[in-house]
Simulated assay, not measured.
Amino acid sequence: MNISIIGGSGFVGTQLIALLRKSANLQIKNIDKQASATFPELTSIANVLDTDALKRELVGADLVILLAAEHRDDVTPTSLYYDVNVQGMRNTLEAMQHNGVSRLIFTSSVAVYGLDKPNPTEDSAKEPFNHYGISKWEAEKVLDAWAKDHEDWNINIIRPTVIFGEGNRGNVFNLLNQIATGKFMMIGKGNNQKSMSYVGNIIAFIQFVLLEKQTGYNIYNYVDKPDFTTNDLVYHTGEILGKEIPTVHIPYWLGMMGGYGFDVLAFITRKKLNISSVRVKKFCAVTKYDSTKAMSSGFVPPYSLEEGLHRMLKAEFGK
């Protein structure tokens, strides 16, 4: 099977390629606007916004995995979310049809549901609160309309929650780094549940879908259970690292005021900062999602959530 991964030079894509390459029956090609530091020999440089380039690069493909996305909280201009995440979907579908490719795995996001929702399932209302979530939902709607006119296609949508693991430099790493360096302060009470996905499990699930879900139109939330509260996450991290965790809690309103202050500072300096009002809001929100469908599909996660946390901390902080 010839697999083309669009946007595979990043964190998830690099680990996915490493996993899929272990199978002699899978031939992997990475298509990305940036070179892959780990797999340059498998990478062709092309932008998801360039339909003609995608048409050239997808020749001979049997299946496409679409990972390419604008996902940071501070992307400017905000139109990039829609250019890459929505128009990029249209361009990918056009290039696939041009080459007779009818199998797609698309990594969307639980951001389509919005914040502080009561454990949403795949069928829950979509109320994204930021440009990333809105653009991911718009991309899904493009794909849904396409599927209605292409009933013979095999389309799988995976909506992971926040992904963490070795080599990641996202919000979870920032939190762990603050704890490891003694710079952590809890905002709010810390009782909010935080669904997370370990990268070793999410790439294994993508491989499972690739091999086992070869027909139909399927949508899956992906979450590793059980859901930790922020207090649980801090406790486990401190225990694994052998760090004393501060017990001082900053009120939510004060944390948000600080976040707005950093927003102003980022605007004035034109720099991207690790603290913002959006990140404070996300840190304090309940982000709990239902993954019953994925976990009853026959897939068995190779790692527990705590084991994934331990593996990341060992790799990043030598513990």
Rank of each mutant, 00 (worst) to 15 (best):
E244H: 11
T247I: 05
S276F: 08
D290L: 05
L273C: 08
S277Q: 08
V280R: 01
P246C: 03
D263L: 09
V248N: 05
R279A: 09
I240A: 08
T269H: 12
P251L: 04
K272T: 14
M256N: 02
S277H: 10
T247C: 02
S277T: 06
T247V: 06
D290I: 03
I245W: 11
S277P: 03
I245T: 02
I268H: 10
V248M: 11
V248Q: 09
K288G: 00
T247D: 10
Y252K: 13
I268Y: 13
W253N: 06
I240T: 01
F283M: 15
V278Q: 11
I245N: 08
M256I: 04
Y289H: 15
I245P: 05
G261K: 10
C284R: 08
Y289T: 09
S276G: 07
A285Q: 05
M257S: 11
D290Q: 14
F283C: 07
K271H: 07
F262L: 14
I240L: 13
H249L: 05
Y252P: 00
V280T: 06
V280Y: 03
I250S: 04
A285S: 15
D290K: 15
M257N: 09
K243H: 11
L265W: 13
Y260M: 07
D263I: 04
L254I: 09
G255W: 03
R279S: 11
A285E: 03
G261Q: 07
N274K: 15
V264C: 07
Y252R: 14
I240R: 09
K272C: 00
L254T: 06
G258V: 02
L241F: 09
L273N: 09
F262A: 08
K281T: 14
L273A: 06
I240D: 01
I240N: 07
L254P: 00
V278L: 13
N274R: 15
D290V: 05
V248F: 14
K282V: 04
C284M: 11
K271C: 00
G255I: 03
F267G: 11
